[in-house]
C-alpha cells in the first residue's frame, strides 16, 4: 500500500457546479478548494443555498462536477465508496419499509467489504431497544438514528453528514454529537454541513464558511465566530455623533438614521453597558442576534476576500 495515498485526506480542487433552471443558470458551487487532513472534524457552515449540499454531493460522487476534482484518501469517490471508506448521512431521506432495523442494517453491512459489527453499531447509536421494530414504525428521531447507523455500517474512515440534526429533538441532538465525537476520537475524519453556528462551534476543529457557492472563511471556530457572531443594537439616541458611538467597546460599525442608531457589535454585552453609562438618554433599545444569513451576505458583499488560514 502506498503510504502517500493512505495518509492523504480529502482534497477538493476547483470544484464547480452550475444547474440549469427555468430562471437561468444557478451557480451552486463556484470554485471550491479545500484540503482536509486525516483525523480532522470539519464543519461546513453556511446559509441555505450556500452550496454546501452540492459540494457534499460532488464529494460523494453523487453529482459529477462541471470542473475540478475530488480525491478521498488518494482515490476517486466511487473507488473510495466501494472500499467502504466513506459513510454518509444525506440531507433528505427516509428508510425503505418492511424490514426491521436489524435486518436493514444487516443488509447494508452485507454490501461492504469489511463492515462494522451490526450489534456494535446498534449499541453505539442507541438502537438495541428497537432492533426488531419495522422501519415504517419509527419516529422521526429514531429514523435519523438508523440513518446515522447506516452511515457507520461500512466502518468508514470518513463520515459525511449533511445537516444531520435537522429532524432531531434536543436530547437526540446531544446523543448524536456524542456518538459523532466518539467516532472522531478514533482518529477518523468527519465533515458535516450545518447552518447552526453553535453546532459548528461546539463540534468542529475547523469551520469552513460557505456563501454563494464559495468558501468565504476557513479557520478555527473561534475565529469564524468572531467574524459572523455579531449582534445588532438599535436605539433611539438623538445628538450623538457616529464616531462617538464607534468609540464604544465591542462596536465594529455604527450608523445613524435620523434619531436612531444602529450598531454592529462583536460583544453586545460590553456595548450596552458602556452605552447606558455614557449616553443615559438612549431609549427603545433593541438587541438582535446577528442573523447568520446577513453575516454571510455581508462577508461576500464587502470584503469578499477569502480569508487564508
Amino acid at each position: 500500500m502506498e503510504d502517500a495515498a493512505a495518509g492523504a485526506g480529502i482534497s477538493l480542487a476547483g470544484l464547480t457546479k452550475t444547474f440549469r433552471s427555468p430562471d437561468g443558470p444557478v451557480h451552486a458551487v463556484r470554485g471550491v478548494d479545500v484540503d482536509i487532513p486525516r483525523g480532522q472534524t470539519v464543519a461546513l457552515l453556511g446559509p441555505n443555498g450556500a452550496g454546501k449540499s452540492t459540494t457534499i454531493d460532488m464529494l460523494l460522487g453523487l453529482t459529477p462536477p462541471d470542473a475540478g476534482s475530488v480525491t478521498l484518501f488518494g482515490r476517486e469517490p466511487r473507488t473510495a465508496v466501494n472500499a467502504g471508506l466513506i459513510g454518509a448521512m444525506l440531507q433528505t431521506g427516509s428508510l425503505i419499509q418492511y424490514l426491521s432495523v436489524r435486518e436493514l442494517l444487516t443488509m447494508m453491512a452485507g454490501m461492504f467489504p469489511a463492515p462494522a459489527d451490526v450489534g456494535e453499531v446498534m449499541a453505539k447509536t442507541g438502537l438495541e431497544r428497537i432492533a426488531r421494530r419495522r422501519t415504517q414504525k419509527l419516529s422521526g428521531g429514531e429514523t435519523q438514528r438508523v440513518r446515522f447507523a447506516i452511515a457507520l455500517i461500512s466502518n468508514p474512515d470518513l463520515l459525511v453528514l449533511d445537516e444531520p440534526t435537522v429532524a432531531m429533538d434536543v436530547e437526540s441532538r446531544h446523543e448524536f454529537w456524542e456518538a459523532m465525537r466518539d467516532f472522531a476520537a478514533r482518529g477518523k475524519t468527519v465533515l458535516f454541513a450545518t447552518h447552526y453556528l453553535e453546532e459548528a462551534d461546539q463540534n468542529a476543529d475547523r469551520v469552513i464558511l460557505m456563501a454563494r457557492g464559495q468558501v468565504v472563511a476557513d479557520g478555527p471556530p473561534t475565529e469564524i465566530k468572531g467574524r459572523v457572531g455579531f449582534r445588532t443594537l438599535r436605539a433611539t439616541l438623538p445628538g450623538v455623533q457616529a464616531d462617538e458611538l464607534l468609540a464604544l467597546p465591542g462596536v465594529s460599525s455604527a450608523e445613524r438614521r435620523g434619531e436612531a442608531i444602529i450598531l454592529s457589535c462583536s460583544d453586545s454585552d460590553q456595548t450596552i453597558r458602556a452605552l447606558l453609562e455614557r449616553h443615559p438618554a438612549a431609549r427603545d433599545i433593541e438587541i438582535t442576534g446577528g442573523a447568520l444569513e446577513d453575516a454571510f451576505l455581508a462577508l461576500t458583499a464587502d470584503d469578499a476576500e477569502p480569508v487564508a488560514r
Partner: peptide, 16 residues
Amino acid sequence: AERQAGWTRQLRITPL
C-alpha cells in the same frame, strides 16, 4: 416510492 424516500441516493453510496 423508494426514490421519494431518497433511498436510491443512499444506495448509490454503497458498492451495489
